[in-house]
Simulated assay, not measured.
Amino acid sequence: MPPAYSSLTVIPRWLILMGLLTALGPLAIDMYLPAFPAIADGLQTTPGHVERTLASYLFGLAMAQLFYGPFADRYGRKKPLVAGLLIFITASIGCAFTSDIEHLTWWRIAQAFGGAAGIVIPRAVIRDNFDTRDASKALSILMLVMGVTPILAPILGGQVLTFGSWRWIFGIMTICAVGLLTAVVLTMKETLHPERVIPLGFGIIGRNYLALLRHKKFICYTLAGGFGSAGMFAYIAGSPRVFIEIFNVDPRYFGILFGINAASLIIAAQVSARLLNRHSPEAVLKKAQISLVAMTLIALVLTLTGLITLLLLMLCLAGFMASQGFVNPNAAALALAEQGKRLGVASALMGTLQMLCGACAGLAVSIWQSPSPLPLTGMLAACACLSWLFGRIALKAT
């Protein structure tokens, strides 16, 4: 059992490993996006069927987190993580050698069940080692990794396609997971203290999840971060159509605009970590949510009045993403602050609720059709206002 860290003054190696594990899920989401046409041709199917493999992965990622929480609280953090990586490796190999779209879909669901371990367990490990303030700093570092991954993953996937088949993409995922598994087995120490072990049983699991659902501060902080994340999913789903079809941005430059907004998120998350040296997570979250709402309402008003331009939209989106860089890590740390005896379960339920919020927002943007950016700006404003509302409820309950 490693000693608990009272202050995050330097980035320990175990935290870097947790960041890389957290990146595994986004890597599996984004890296194969450029290969959609090649997969459709290779498996002789339609683009729609290939797109559904992404939806299947997201659904599996949301549901699987509920299972890892109880296992992480019973068997520790390391064993479930090793099991998840083994599942991910096996499923990635299956994806690489699949012969039809149906098997690819099922292998993607299995891959998600493995990759979910890299989302749930690192958050629990961080709270095992740090208090709330330093946990916010550590989660900001994880956001740096998660912010960089969606930028680099599609670029990497596109480069792979220039010299190899789409199957090589899943081969690279396999190699990455094998490397992480090796690092976990050789270097990771168990962080769950024996006195915090929770017996595994359906009754105990059910009572823990029910207690969390009744825990006002946990649910409200989780939804404050969840609806902020939902806005990000809406942006990911809606930005290609808005940029390319409405504002006629050349697809070659779409990645640059996407990268600018992602950079806003990354930089803000690191500034948040520095601010926590002088301010409480509650104070940082409160101000960030005001900015979150302001940026999205400005974008919505500009859209409704017909004054929106690409430059103004980019400024609003960059402001939204920067605000989210403050909201997400602080809301997550505050949600887990009082869950020391059930961190695994709490981290799992938080991840599931936030993923479901994001999936619903992304689906709403794809269904809401308009010749203007209204579906995007409208959904961003709705998500920001809901994030603000639940944040205020949580802060008043403190």
Rank of each mutant, 00 (worst) to 15 (best):
G319H: 00
T46L: 10
S264V: 02
V242Q: 00
G255I: 10
W388S: 06
C383I: 08
G226M: 09
D30I: 04
F36K: 07
A361S: 11
I89R: 02
S7V: 11
W14L: 13
A262D: 05
G231V: 05
L302A: 10
I308K: 00
I89V: 12
A55L: 15
G231Y: 03
V82A: 01
V82Y: 01
N330T: 05
V10W: 12
T98N: 03
N330F: 01
A318D: 01
L15N: 05
W107L: 01
A177P: 08
T222L: 04
L376M: 15
A153G: 06
P80D: 00
G340E: 13
T98L: 05
A294S: 11
N328T: 14
G94A: 12
Q111V: 05
I246F: 08
M232R: 09
R252G: 12
A4Q: 15
M1Y: 14
A55E: 14
A382I: 15
S99L: 12
G325R: 00
V178M: 14
S7D: 14
A394T: 03
G171F: 13
G225H: 01
M173R: 06
A38C: 04
S387H: 00
Q44C: 12
A211S: 12
R278N: 13
K189F: 11
L223R: 07
A116V: 08
L192H: 06
A322T: 03
Y57L: 14
S366P: 04
G351H: 02
L380C: 02
L152P: 07
A96K: 09
I93K: 04
G164R: 07
S56Y: 09
G84T: 11
W166E: 09
A38E: 13
T90I: 15
W388M: 12
M314S: 11
I298A: 03
L104V: 03
I393K: 11
R77K: 10
T162Q: 09
A322C: 04
G48R: 10
M188D: 05
L302I: 07
P240Q: 10
P373Y: 02
I109C: 03
M173I: 14
V148E: 08
F254R: 00
G358S: 13
V365D: 02
R13E: 14
A364V: 11
W168E: 12
F170C: 11
Y75L: 13
T296G: 03
L161S: 07
P3E: 14
I169S: 00
A346L: 08
A269K: 04
V293I: 13
V365A: 05
S264N: 02
L223S: 09
A288S: 15
S7G: 10
A234R: 04
F202E: 05
T398Y: 09
G147C: 04
I29P: 01
L81Y: 02
L180Y: 08
H215R: 12
A62Y: 06
P375A: 00
I119N: 04
T22I: 14
L186Y: 08
G325W: 00
L85T: 05
A40H: 09
S56R: 01
D128T: 09
P251S: 11
A364L: 14
V284C: 05
S92K: 04
E282R: 15
G60R: 02
A273K: 06
A384D: 09
I16G: 09
A62W: 06
R278V: 12
L302C: 06
R133E: 11
L54K: 02
G60W: 02
R133D: 09
G238I: 07
A234N: 10
L265A: 01
A361K: 05
L313K: 00
P3T: 13
P80M: 01
T398C: 11
W106Y: 13
